[in-house]
Amino acid sequence: MIRTLAARELRSLFALPSTWLMLGVLQFLLAWNFLSRLDAWLQLQPQLAQLANPPGVTITVAAPLLNMLGLLLMLLTPLFTMRAFAEERRNQTLALLLSSPVSARQLVLGKFLGLLTFLMLLVAAELAMVGTLGIGTSLDKGLLAANLLGLLLLTMSFVAVGLYISMLTAQPIVAAIGGLAVLLGLWVIDVSATDEGAIWHELSPVAHFQKLNIGLFDTADITFFLLFTAAFLQLSVCRIRALRRG
């Protein structure tokens, strides 16, 4: 049942013209950034060749590009998750789902996996772009693996937040604004915190992703993402159960 719900969510996303528009704009921005960074790296080759241990293309081109992708996902994920439950409520189809034999956990996980699969296809497209660098030079596979793991965990956390906010309203636009406000709020608080040991740094998914972006594996960061995602998914499950009781 979870697989069926995920496939349904995935099909509904690809059926929307706005989805293709946003994907087109995102691909343009990332491709432009990729080519700009690659051109700058090529122009610096004479100077880099004089260094004993020059930075590779993975650090100078790939990692910054994937970091930019993480920030763009923070902005775009609420636009993709806003319809997950809000649209169902507005179209009066959520009542049908709530009256079906599907459990609250299955319903949330189905929506979650559908959205996550869609966004990870986008991440895979960007990794394929980065992979073209391997044709002419060697890539740091460990750093790329860290970034892939980081983007997966980061996307999971963003989707979980977006799903819960979408549960709270019948207006997709309100859900998008609410999800964006939560994610941007956590990021702004992290950026504005001047004390390195401040608790605010530990509450931002982007801050934990940036450690993986530079190749730093830390079980504390992975644990944060898993707990953060599980907490918001559980909030969505509790919300559905409350609607069924009401």
Rank of each mutant, 00 (worst) to 15 (best):
V102T: 03
V206Y: 12
A170W: 08
A193P: 00
T223D: 10
L148R: 00
H201C: 02
L149M: 03
D218C: 08
V188G: 05
A170Y: 06
I222Q: 00
I165L: 12
Q210D: 13
L143E: 02
G185L: 07
A231H: 05
S157Y: 07
A198V: 10
V123K: 11
A207H: 12
T169M: 12
Q234W: 13
L113G: 05
I199M: 14
L149D: 00
A220M: 09
S99A: 13
G179M: 06
G178Y: 01
L212G: 02
V206N: 06
L168A: 12
M129T: 00
S166D: 06
M156L: 13
T117P: 14
V182R: 02
A181V: 08
D218H: 05
Q234P: 02
A146M: 11
L127G: 02
S103W: 07
F228C: 09
G197D: 05
A125C: 15
E202N: 14
S204E: 05
C238Y: 15
L148M: 13
D195F: 09
V188Q: 10
F224A: 03
T93G: 08
S204W: 01
F217G: 00
S100E: 02
V174G: 11
L163P: 09
T229A: 14
L144I: 04
S166W: 06
A95S: 15
G197I: 08
L127D: 03
F209H: 00
D218K: 01
F225C: 05
G150E: 02
G215Q: 00
D195K: 07
K141F: 15
L184E: 09
A181G: 10
A181M: 11
L151K: 01
T219Y: 11
S100I: 00
L98F: 06
L183R: 04
A104R: 06
L96V: 06
T229I: 10
T93W: 07
A125V: 14
F209V: 00
A124W: 13
G134V: 02
G179A: 08
A193V: 06
N213E: 03
F225G: 02
M120G: 12
V191I: 12
F112R: 02
M167D: 01
G215D: 00
L163R: 01
V188T: 08
V108P: 15
V191M: 15
S166I: 10
T169S: 13
N213R: 04
A231R: 09
A176G: 13
D140N: 15
L153F: 03
Q92W: 11
L119P: 09
L235M: 12
V188L: 15
D195A: 14
F158V: 05
L184M: 12
L186M: 08
R105Y: 12
L168N: 08
I222P: 00
A125S: 14
A175N: 07
S157T: 03
K141D: 14
G178T: 02
T223M: 15
G162C: 09
V108Q: 01
L183Q: 09
T137S: 14
F228T: 04
L216R: 11
V188H: 11
A160K: 06
W200V: 03
S192A: 15
A175S: 11
E202M: 14
